[in-house]
Design a protein around this nucleic acid. Structure first.
Length: 718
DNA sequence: ATCCTCGGATCGTAAAAGAT
DNA sequence: TCTTTTACGATCCGAGGATT
């Protein structure tokens, strides 16, 4: 029946103007219009799965009074690259295993897994919960974050579900699980029964689609991912008021900025979804999608600040970032966002954190970061097992989001001396199977780097670790780990933005670790873990080598976080230089130059002078050569950056020699070890924050200073 | 009675696999 | 290189649920 009727239907429409993209119709037959004319359904009809007459606007859209558009580009048909081979390989492997010498007949195996057609067909949850040991062995690698899971292609985790489902021919579940190579770039989520989505709402698997399309909540699989929510909390009965909202097309220019400059460090949303113009023309963004977009825009605006020209604020006279953040908070008050937790709300909180963090409003920033973490915990994103219950695509998006929170929490906790809550307890997102392996490699690299900042580091930094545990060996291990963790990938292949992030962050952590050592009196050790007085100069050189040639925008897109790191590094360097006042050794001169360059960078960060610069300069008062620095910085506006980038980085020949020509007194180390400055990242923040700092270091006792004497002598005679 | 959603049948196309 | 097979995206019918 179907075909005949279909053809008749096609014939009925044969008189209509050809579909926009159809030029094959006439070639199809010599038989007037009976052809199965390749029609083009409009975006809405496609989504509604109804016949479209391909008019503009089409009849269905007219009838429904909705905007008709043909914006969604058709996807490429046919098998995808290696996918077929991969799936076949995986299936064959399973088959081999199942029919191996020790195995009982295949049907018995299948029977165990409830494959048999006579068995009642298991629902999705049954399937997921009834994995055999053998199946789990495919997955075990994902449960061990200590090995590099990123090197495991996704498909290795697929057979578990696929093997269970394949025999259910024609069931949507098959479609769902047998698609290991996700069309990330196309934005297609294709979660099986939900897979025929396509419209603009081909949203990222981070459930934005779910947010947008209520019907998805009716899917048991998805409902499972969203505890206690079988359906949308936003019922269509109580449609949200959009009267006070910003027009939806406000967002796109900012979202574009986000993808151009910030996506590399926050690869947690789907590009094609959020860059699709039709996404912003529905006129029906759900409240939490609206919140998410406003939060993202506010964070993007403030983070990029004046680095690049930005669109005019939607409300002239009001700064765009404030406006977006305000809108976000206003909209959030219209519904219970604690009840509607989803990855989308995690990201909303996260971007609010970024907004406040960039404004140095640390109470609010920490609050929203914690909120996003709490939300992640509620969704059990810190539990590896939870990911296996998810659609593989969704699970990858969530992994990215989890690790973004992890990285951010670690960095921020260190800067603000807070506890951390998240652990490296889940596998990293996959790299090689992602839409952009290079980009993901960078992201994973950063995650690895922060994995080296373990609990003991954080607690030592907070001062809550027993100082006896903070010995030289431990520090040396930590320092070494920082270097090895980020070497998994060739940094040269990363985007400039990521290269900067990883490189500077690594050296910044080195600086922190070094300060940790100094404040624990380790400066006179064997030099392990860089516990030498000139180590910060060496670190500064590396930083200068990284940031010197970097394009301003690549540096700027990291927002205030990068300013903080650079100023921490510069501050530490300044401390060291200050302590060696009067020293004329090569090391000192080089150090001065590096400091100079760093200050130059800070003077032009994000299109203006960093707020950290002035306090830094004030701190350097009395540093010999400082006069020169201030003169250098007094370059005409617009030239500073050029000045900084063009400055030749002097080659610091291996352990600079002569090192410090130290005739310096023991008081130098006394100064270094004093709580005044060292171990105080983010030191140039408003007064009240001083109270949050621990007295991180101690003044050396006299008997310790005596012990130092031989070391000082040996250094000074080198 | 009407509207709406969505499972899934069917088709066209493109890539992979196989034949020569 | 040509042919066949396979995978997959697109369309949209029609069952069944929701709404009026």
């Amino acid at each position: 029946m179907g075909l005949a009727e279909k053809e008749m239907a096609a014939e009925t429409h044969a008189q209509e103007p050809p579909a926009p993209t159809s030029n094959t119709a006439k070639a199809c037959n010599g038989f007037s219009g009976v052809a199965k004319q390749p029609r083009r359904a409009c975006d809405c009809c496609r989504k509604r799965k109804i016949r479209c007459d391909a008019q503009e606007p089409c009849g269905q859209c007219m009838k429904a009074s909705i905007r008709c558009a043909y914006l969604q580009p058709p996807k490429k048909k046919g098998p995808k690259g290696l996918r077929s081979a991969r799936v076949l390989h995986a299936l064959r492997k399973i088959d081999d295993t199942a029919s191996g010498p020790s195995a009982s007949p295949a049907h018995a195996q299948f029977g165990d897994w409830q494959w048999g057609p006579q068995e009642p067909r298991p629902g999705p949850s049954d399937v997921y919960d009834s994995q055999s040991q053998e199946i789990q062995s495919y997955n075990h690698v994902y449960q061990r974050p200590d090995i590099a899971p990123s090197t495991q292609p996704y498909f290795q985790s697929i057979p578990s579900v696929m093997s269970v489902r394949m025999p259910q021919q024609g069931q949507s579940a098959v479609k769902l699980e047998s698609r290991p190579d996700y069309s990330w770039s196309s934005g297609r989520t294709d979660t099986g029964s939900l897979g025929s989505e396509s419209i603009p709402q081909v949203l990222s698997p981070t459930s934005s689609e779910a947010m947008h399309d209520f019907s998805r909540y009716q899917d048991p699989g998805l409902a499972k991912c969203m505890p206690d929510r079988g359906r949308s909390p936003f019922s269509k009965d109580d449609r949200w008021s959009t009267s006070r909202r910003l027009p939806e097309d406000t967002f796109l220019p900012y979202v574009q900025l986000f993808f151009t400059h910030m996506f590399a460090i926050m690869p947690v949303i789907d590009r094609s979804t959020f860059l699709d113009t039709s996404f912003y023309t529905t006129g029906a963004l759900s409240p939490d999608m609206y919140c998410f977009l406003t939060a993202l825009c506010s964070a993007t605006t403030v983070q990029l600040d004046d680095s690049i020209p930005q669109p005019q604020s939607p409300q002239p006279g009001k700064k765009a970032d404030h406006l977006f953040a305000e809108e976000c908070l206003r909209e959030r008050r219209t519904f219970d966002h604690a009840e509607t937790m989803s990855p989308l709300s995690i990201m909303t909180s996260f971007f609010l954190f970024a907004y406040y963090g960039n404004h140095e409003k640390h109470f609010q920033a920490w609050h929203y970061l914690q909120e996003s973490i709490t939300c992640a915990e509620n969704l059990e994103m810190d539990d590896e097992a939870s990911y296996e219950k998810l659609d593989p695509v969704e699970s990858q998006w969530r992994r990215r989001l989890y690790w973004l929170l992890f990285i951010t929490e670690r960095a921020y906790a260190v800067q603000r001396r807070k506890h951390t809550r998240l652990h490296a307890s889940v596998a990293l997102p996959a790299v090689f199977e992602s839409e952009d392996p290079q980009l993901l490699a960078g992201f994973v690299n950063l995650a690895n780097l922060f994995s080296a900042v373990d609990e003991s580091f954080v607690s030592a930094w907070r001062g809550s670790r027993r100082s006896s545990l903070c010995d030289e060996a431990w520090l040396a291990r930590t320092q070494k780990q920082l270097d090895t963790s980020a070497h998994a990938a060739n940094l040269g292949e990363l985007t400039e933005t990521q290269h900067l992030d990883i490189g500077v962050t690594r050296e910044w952590l080195h600086v922190l670790a070094w300060q940790l050592g100094v404040s624990n009196g380790l400066i006179w050790g064997q030099g392990e873990g860089g516990m030498r007085l000139d180590y910060p100069v060496e670190l500064a050189r590396k930083v200068v080598e990284i940031v010197g040639p970097a394009k301003a925008i690549a540096l700027d897109s990291h927002g205030i976080g990068m300013e903080q790191k650079l100023s921490d590094i510069a501050g530490c360097l300044a401390d060291v230089l200050k302590c060696t006042a009067g020293d004329t050794s090569a090391t000192f001169q080089e150090g001065k130059q590096y400091l100079n360059i760093l200050l130059g960078k800070l003077s032009t960060m994000r299109g203006k002078e960093s707020r950290y610069l002035t306090p830094l300069l004030a701190k350097m008062e009395g540093l010999p050569g400082y006069e020169a620095i201030s003169e250098d910085l007094a370059l005409p506006t617009g030239m500073e950056d050029e000045y900084a980038t063009n400055l030749q980085v002097p080659a610091l020949t291996t352990p600079a020699s002569p090192r410090w020509s130290m005739n310096q007194s023991v008081s130098m180390l006394r100064t270094l070890s004093f709580t005044g400055t060292l171990g105080m990242p983010g030191i140039y923040v408003p007064e009240e924050d001083w109270t949050q700092r621990r007295p991180s270091a101690r003044v050396l006792e006299d008997h310790e200073l005596e012990l130092l004497q031989p070391w000082l002598n040996s250094v000074s005679t080198q």
